[in-house]
Amino acid sequence: MRLTDPQNKILKMMYDVILDPSLTTMERVLFVKTKNEIEFGRTFETEVTALLKELNHIPNSKRTTHFRQELSKVFPFSAF
């Protein structure tokens, strides 16, 4: 798995989100699935885009909302 620096930054943020105890079970499942797919070698942008779409269908915790805000600083949504 070869990721760019911004992608590595996002992956690290995902680890932090997954470890946050305030995360809902469904949010954690979605983040872990995405992290695993990226680590398996799937296309980074495709997996993160899928995560964002799935997160649109469930209530988001403050931690997930913060992740989305930080993600938009690293990668503008138009990049996905």
Rank of each mutant, 00 (worst) to 15 (best):
M1Q: 13
M1D: 12
R2W: 14
R2L: 15
R2D: 14
L3N: 14
L3H: 11
L3W: 06
L3T: 04
T4N: 13
D5S: 15
D5A: 15
P6A: 13
P6F: 06
Q7S: 14
Q7W: 04
Q7G: 14
N8L: 15
N8E: 13
K9Q: 12
K9H: 11
L11Q: 12
K12D: 11
K12L: 10
K12Q: 12
K12P: 11
M13S: 06
M13E: 03
M13F: 09
M14E: 03
M14P: 06
M14W: 04
Y15W: 08
Y15K: 11
D16L: 09
V17N: 02
V17F: 01
I18V: 09
I18D: 09
L19N: 07
L19E: 07
D20L: 03
D20R: 02
P21V: 02
P21E: 08
S22G: 04
S22N: 06
L23E: 00
T24Y: 06
T25P: 07
T25K: 09
E27W: 01
R28S: 10
R28E: 07
R28H: 08
V29G: 10
V29N: 09
L30R: 05
V32D: 00
V32G: 05
V32F: 00
K33I: 01
K33T: 05
T34F: 01
T34W: 00
K35V: 01
K35Y: 02
N36T: 04
E37G: 10
E37C: 13
I38N: 08
I38D: 08
I38E: 09
E39M: 06
F40S: 15
F40H: 14
R42C: 15
T43D: 15
T43K: 14
T43R: 14
T43W: 12
T43N: 15
F44V: 06
F44I: 08
F44E: 05
F44G: 13
F44H: 09
E45M: 14
T46G: 13
T46Y: 13
E47H: 09
A50R: 12
L51K: 07
L51N: 05
L52W: 03
L52C: 12
K53N: 13
E54I: 01
N56W: 01
I58G: 02
P59F: 01
P59T: 00
N60G: 08
N60C: 14
N60F: 03
S61R: 04
S61Q: 07
S61C: 07
K62M: 11
K62E: 11
T64V: 03
T64I: 04
T65Y: 01
T65F: 03
T65I: 08
F67Q: 02
F67E: 00
Q69T: 02
Q69F: 03
Q69K: 13
Q69V: 00
Q69A: 15
L71E: 03
K73E: 07
V74Q: 10
F75P: 10
F77S: 10
S78Q: 04
A79V: 05
F80I: 01
